[in-house]
Design a binder for these strands. Structure first.
Length: 848
DNA sequence: ATCCATATG
DNA sequence: TAAACATATGGAT
């Protein structure tokens, strides 16, 4: 559902008042009058206070961050960002299809009387959606009907006909299946498709296979005739209407939808010479495919859809919103295009970033994805690992490309069990490979009606073998089969997951934010040693070819890649992406200059450390990275802002010895923060918690992205969180206040450890930025000269893969100080039973 | 294991 | 008159 906007938040919303409808102020006034004093409103206020408190805590936390911490964080984050860059995959073509005002459009279609009126589907208590006409009055989904009536007295409220919507949805899905049999239906009116494979095949299709006839039998449908008449099948009113006004979000992204569907230049329309049927031929590009899909939907249902085309699901979804209604938008599969798109994109547009997250980030001066990238170091200190990782994904325009396949219905008990067994044994292999054992086994079942159930069982002792897991899973499955008996259990997806790993108890493996590490401080070298050891073990490089031994996530990725690309193959685009230390906006120029075109070569090369300038012999990138990390952290330590630091970079890195332990002479309490250690802790620590294996098709991959925790939020120092609706004010836009204050007090003379030039600055971040640039240039230069493959395609390091592989990402969870909860908060109890949420880490794997 | 907060349609 | 509901997720306790 194109759900723009939800609850009426006070003071929000933009509106381009049309000739008809209401403007923003009027809408807000009416809503306010209708709302104030209501229990609902009071509760909204209370919730708002809680959020404000969270923000306060966060700002307080922020004020205690030192520049040194920030600097260190920057290094770590950038290292991780670099890994993400390298794993960027632009080979898939993902589309997101979204029916326009679905329920309302159906009602209008079937009742001509409604066509020119503002309507909404729902009840006086709650509206499910509204048509575009009604939206001009501020009437939208998730608004109670009685309020909508005050906004728009002429509004017609139609009761929903879900059966009808389901039927139409099925018709649409039949079309979609032609392009991706494994498409993922998100709801009745939304779906993701991976058309990579279709596109590939389509290139060789003769025109006839791309020809579609125009139905003219239904004269009452004027749209259809319009389509023929080479006039885009505009919606009678919708397309003409001003763009939807959104409560609560949407900095105007004025993009007037161009007449989409049949945009004549793009496909040849043919009139059968014999006067038989008119037909259109669609091209072979992704855009044409999507036009074709939308055309067919229109033909079949008389309804319009909007679509987004992008290299991953996140972007596709954002795109589908861009030219809605009845429009489409593509982000070409290049990094540049992605970054351009992301640049000014308000974070709120990104699925997974909701109202609260938006507000919290806004308090940090973050409005757009560029802001998000720019503040990445800060975010890594204020948010949980999962959270900032997902923020980083977002700000780099990364997202999942994976969807599960739909398999044909399975309903025979025997088959169900054998499938389950198969899943268990695969899962067991993964477990073994990861050296994990868990206590909770969860099965996930999605029936043919797309209903998902999960059932979990926790046992006393850890299990890891296929037999043990199956024994548990079988019982769970049996219970479900029995429950439906004598009806067969008709499934389209089954999953098995294991969680509750033994090592979760191990404090070292628990999630922590960096700041908690910083606070903890003083870790002994022993601790470091053990972490390193673990990491080293984890880092054992497994060649991608050895599919047998691949880590499960690697395997998953390979399986999911439909085209013939090898997932970790080095691609030119990926290479350019080496530099990630600059904000997307800045990185362009760099990018262009970085078109290292080195071919795939062996992973080991002779490197010169850009910090200490020591030649590192034949080592692989991983080792180089670690070495550089250490050099950097030494530099850092020596650059203690307390003193005027003049690091002799040459001498900092003592010996040749590339990647070994920190030297004993270094005794800073921050030693345990050498990036190579903490990055791994950070990246590994989090996601490992549930291995799961699913078969079937569709994984519920509803959203990816962020997640957050406030375990480390503290206080606040910002001015005034209460007004939520003004744009970023002076304070929020710049550097953190606290930081500015700190910085203004000191002046340092620092020597850039890379270029070796003296930098006089009062702003460590600026200096840091300088170093970043130097470092990246240096690295890139070195690498290019050495003709090295910049993509660490041999890396099977879990951090990267893990993050990518769990097709689902998390959404902002929360943590925050517990608040007194209102005495009545009703409905929480209902949805809890089935969830296996005890996992700290999650790695999901899917296979057939 | 249970509860809470966030997010989505 | 009147502000839903189901579901998924992370995280704290």
């Amino acid at each position: 559902m194109d759900n723009d906007g939800l609850l009426l938040r006070m003071g929000l919303n933009d509106n381009k008042a049309g000739m008809e409808g209401l403007d923003k102020e009027k809408i807000n006034k009416i809503i306010m009058e209708a709302s104030k004093g209501s229990r609902f409103y009071e509760n909204e206020l209370k919730k708002e206070k809680q959020v404000n408190q969270r923000i306060e805590n966060m700002m307080q936390q922020k004020s205690q961050i030192t520049t040194k911490q920030l600097w260190k964080a920057q290094l770590q984050v950038d290292k991780f960002a670099m890994e993400l860059e390298q794993s960027r995959d632009l080979h898939c073509t993902i589309i997101h299809i979204d029916m326009d005002a679905f329920y309302a459009a159906v009602e209008m279609r079937d009742n001509p009387e409604l066509r020119d009126k503002p309507i909404a589907v729902g009840s006086m208590r709650m509206l499910a959606t509204s048509n575009y006409h009604a939206r001009r009055f501020g009437v939208r989904a998730a608004m109670p009907g009685f309020i909508a009536k005050r906004l728009c007295p002429q509004l017609t409220i139609v009761a929903p006909n879900f059966d009808k919507y389901r039927k139409i949805s099925k018709e649409v899905r039949e079309i979609l299946a032609d392009y991706d049999p494994n498409f993922m239906a998100m709801s009745l009116d939304e779906a993701y498709l991976n058309i990579t494979k279709h596109l590939e095949e389509r290139q060789n299709w003769p025109e006839d296979k791309r020809r579609h006839f125009i139905k003219t039998e239904n004269p009452s449908e004027n749209d259809k005739t319009e389509a023929v008449g080479s006039r885009a099948p505009e919606l009678n009113e919708d397309t003409l209407s001003v763009s939807p006004l959104l409560f609560e979000d949407s900095p105007p992204q004025l993009k007037k939808p161009e007449p989409e569907i049949p945009s004549q230049e793009h496909f040849e329309e043919q009139r059968d010479p014999q006067g038989l049927q008119n037909s259109v031929i669609f091209g072979t590009s992704a855009e044409e495919v999507v036009k074709e899909i939308r055309f067919r939907i229109k033909q079949k249902t008389s309804l319009t859809a909007s679509a987004g085309i992008a290299p991953n699901t996140v972007l596709a979804k954002v795109c589908s919103d861009k030219n809605k209604p009845n429009g489409q938008y593509q982000i070409p599969p290049t990094r540049q295009a992605v970054m351009d798109f992301i640049k000014d994109l308000p974070i709120r547009k990104v699925p997974g970033i909701g109202k609260v997250t938006e507000k919290m980030l806004k308090a940090l001066g973050i409005i757009t994805c560029s802001d998000l990238y720019q503040k990445r170091a800060l975010l890594s200190l204020l948010f949980s690992e999962t959270s900032w990782h997902s923020f980083l994904h977002i700000s780099l325009g990364l997202g999942s490309t994976q969807m599960e396949r739909t398999f044909t219905e399975i309903s025979k008990a025997e088959e169900l069990y054998s499938l389950c067994q198969e899943l268990c044994s695969d899962l067991a292999q993964d477990l073994q490979r990861e050296g994990l054992k868990g206590k909770t086994v969860t099965i996930k079942l999605k029936n043919v009606n797309f209903e998902v159930k999960t059932r979990a069982s926790t046992v006393a002792a850890v299990v890891s073998t296929a037999e043990e897991i199956f024994a548990i899973a079988k019982e769970l499955l049996k219970a479900e089969i029995d429950a439906d008996y004598p009806q067969p259990l008709r499934l389209r997806l089954m999953g098995v997951r294991i969680s509750g790993f033994a090592n979760e108890e191990d404090p070292k493996n628990r999630q922590r934010s960096i700041i908690s590490f910083l606070k903890a401080g003083g870790h002994s070298l022993d601790t470091i040693g053990s972490v390193l050891e673990k990491n080293d073990r984890d880092r054992v490089v497994k060649p991608p070819e050895a599919s047998h031994k691949e880590s499960f996530f690697t395997k998953k990725r390979s399986e999911m890649s439909w085209n013939h690309q090898v997932i970790f193959k080095c691609e030119p685009e990926a290479k350019q992406d080496f530099q990630v230390s600059q904000p997307p906006s800045l990185s362009k120029e760099e990018m262009n200059e970085n078109l290292a075109t080195s071919e795939n070569v062996d992973e080991c090369q002779v490197f010169t450390c850009p910090i200490c300038f020591m030649e590192q012999g034949k080592i692989c990138l991983e080792a180089l990275n670690r070495h550089v990390d250490e050099c950097l952290s030494r530099t850092l330590i020596d650059c203690d802002p307390k003193m005027v630091a003049v690091p002799q970079s040459q001498s900092l890195c003592s010996e040749v010895n590339p990647d070994l332990k920190p030297q004993k002479t270094i005794e800073s309490p921050l030693v345990d923060f050498v990036p190579s250690v903490s990055v791994d802790v950070l990246s590994k620590g989090h996601h490992t918690a549930a291995l799961s294996t699913e078969a079937g098709n569709e994984k519920n991959q509803k959203q990816y992205s962020s997640l957050w925790n406030n375990s480390c939020l503290d206080e606040y120092f910002y001015q005034n969180p209460s007004h939520e609706n003004e744009g970023s004010d002076a304070t929020s836009s710049g550097e953190p206040k606290a930081l500015q204050t700190n910085l203004s007090q000191d002046k340092y003379t620092l020597v850039c450890p890379v270029c070796n030039l003296e930098q006089k600055t009062s702003d460590l971040m600026l200096f840091n930025g300088h170093v970043d640039i130097c470092l990246n240039k240096g690295l890139i230069k070195e690498l290019r000269e050495d003709n090295v493959n910049l993509v660490m395609n041999c890396s099977t390091e879990s951090s990267k893969n893990t993050t990518e592989s769990s097709g689902k990402m998390q959404r902002p969870g929360n943590n925050m100080a517990k608040m007194k909860r209102p005495g009545l908060m009703t409905n929480n109890s209902t949805s809890k039973k089935t969830k296996p949420n005890n996992s700290k880490y999650t790695i999901d794997t899917f296979f057939k």
